[in-house]
Nucleic acid binder design. Structure first.
Lengths: 292, 292
DNA sequence: CGACTTATACTCAATCTGAGTATTTGCTCG
DNA sequence: CGAGCAAATACTCAGATTGAGTATAAGTCG
């Protein structure tokens, strides 16, 4: 079997309340792909990824982490296996080169955004379809109810995508069978495993949120507490309780005031900056989701 | 550059209070290696790993999970890169074929066992050496104090191994320089990255312990609550508070009594079995470390 | 029988969570 | 220029969770 090794990157940024990831367009196909590189001569994989991103996309990478290695026999060809090592990178949104564009995470995975409650579309359309797909199978029903159950469990992004795939509710399932979709499908599709990998990345970010200070790699140097909260909410896909969120942040000592203030209409808010020293104080670190 | 893709497995079992992993011996070398296979034709990587383990070691794999892909340029040869996809597998300890043996996890990583407090050897020997290695560097000092700080943070296994490596306190550092160790080194070494991968695996298990019922894949069908606790303690490397541990397990509904009892000297304890249905009740799942 | 060992039941204070209410403070518009 | 708005910040409170014990039960062993 033919074997190819690639590095794929999910490059994430958050701008005004929307998590986004970098998509590259291939004129050949109508789909967006993840930026991808072949393995270079760099000594470590992490460095190879950083180099590829900074070179190809001109982005300053604030954080990189290996996500997962996908190596299933490519569904669209039987005698060829592409093993792709997927990475997550966090950046701040900037202008992009042609051929690349910021895609809205929740355009790809609309069922992941619960910031204004469970969207009616999901509740009235997707869930019934999933349940009817599950049919008599207790195992399937259990999976659906765990993944889509209430309260919303942000981390199970991949579980949900896998279910959508198996239930033929995403374009990619039909593409893998080489037929046009014969029933409704949801969310913007991507090339090959792109969306599955993006789902893995979102799940990982959500998981990390509560115990590692990842948000700060997505924010500007200084920010108000509300901006910080909105950024967390954008990623977590749920709304948080403002007062409690502040209590948490302050108790953890994650930020310090700059003395300056920003005004957005209401009472001006103090600007804060991240205090990297907390890393040494080994407390909770991170801005937990617990706070509804 | 020459490229090779391998699947490496950390196969873990826990027997009478000791976490162990499977080592295979290579007559060529004096070191233990991790069991390893080349990528087979199986459709998915997970399946390839399962098949390789069940075939080669004759073990029934209860749980498999991809750990990490290691692809740094092999330190011992410059023109060759081995990319190894490492997997974690949980099994129950059984008789092994020749050439394979159960290695004590804490023989490899003695500084990870805090069940009887911080071992005096670590406190009086390893820590001073780390601090003297850190010297004036604030960054190094910070890393040491976070990784080895008090209270013991079980999850940071890899951080600790990396520090030990950089500080030349493990055999592998010297081996990578192709010289004999010129200063004291700690723990049983393994071939190449074996111990680094084992460290990654232990960190992953410890992390999962608190939110996924992984212990049950290591235990027999029925067990007493103390056995369960000892198994968790063996993995977590810390002692837990018995009464609180029970409270947690029962509150979570993870187990159910079998009606039978086992006696080990004191008052006979009830035997319990795992209740897989909890997975559907989406509660905490897992037996948290919080309980000291 | 009595000492010992382990199991199991209960208690309690401190802290953490989730959900509010109340009060400031600058801005804007009539 | 003052009323009302929008958001920030301060404070409260009940209920759950934690960490750490004490007390009692039920077998085994000499």
């Amino acid at each position: 079997m033919d074997l190819e090794l690639r590095l794929d990157a999910v490059i994430v940024a958050v701008t005004d309340g929307a998590p986004r990831l970098l998509g590259v367009s291939d004129p050949q196909r109508a789909r967006w792909s993840l930026p991808s590189a072949t393995l270079s001569d760099e000594a470590t994989l992490d460095r190879a990824v950083r180099a590829a991103i900074e070179e190809q996309a001109g982005l300053e990478v604030r954080y990189v982490e290996q996500l997962y290695t996908f190596g299933d026999v490519a569904r669209r060809s039987q005698d060829h296996r592409t093993v792709s090592i997927a990475y997550l990178a966090l950046v701040q949104e900037t202008e992009l080169l042609v051929g690349a564009e910021w895609l809205g995470y929740y355009d790809l995975l609309p069922w992941e955004d619960h910031r204004s409650g469970t969207s009616p579309m999901i509740e009235s359309t997707v869930e019934p379809l999933l349940i009817s797909w599950a049919g008599q199978s207790d195992e399937r029903l259990a999976r659906v109810s765990v993944a889509f159950g209430d309260p919303f469990d942000g981390v199970r992004v991949l579980d949900r995508y896998e279910l959508m795939y198996e239930a033929k509710l995403v374009e990619e399932w039909w593409a893998d069978q080489r037929v046009a979709a014969e029933s409704p499908v949801f969310g913007e599709p991507m090339h090959l495993d792109g969306r599955r990998i993006a789902a893995t990345a979102l799940g990982r970010i959500r998981g990390k949120l509560s115990y590692r200070p990842v948000v700060f790699d997505l924010l500007a140097e200084s920010f108000t507490l509300l901006e910080l909260q909105r950024c967390v909410e954008a990623l977590a896909g749920v709304r948080l309780h403002k007062q409690n969120f502040r209590r948490l942040i302050e108790r953890a000592g994650l930020v310090e005031g700059t003395g300056e203030r920003a005004s957005h209409g209401g009472r001006p808010a103090e600007l804060f900056r991240y205090r990297p020293e907390v890393q040494l104080e080994r407390s909770r670190l991170g801005v937990g989701q617990p706070y509804r």
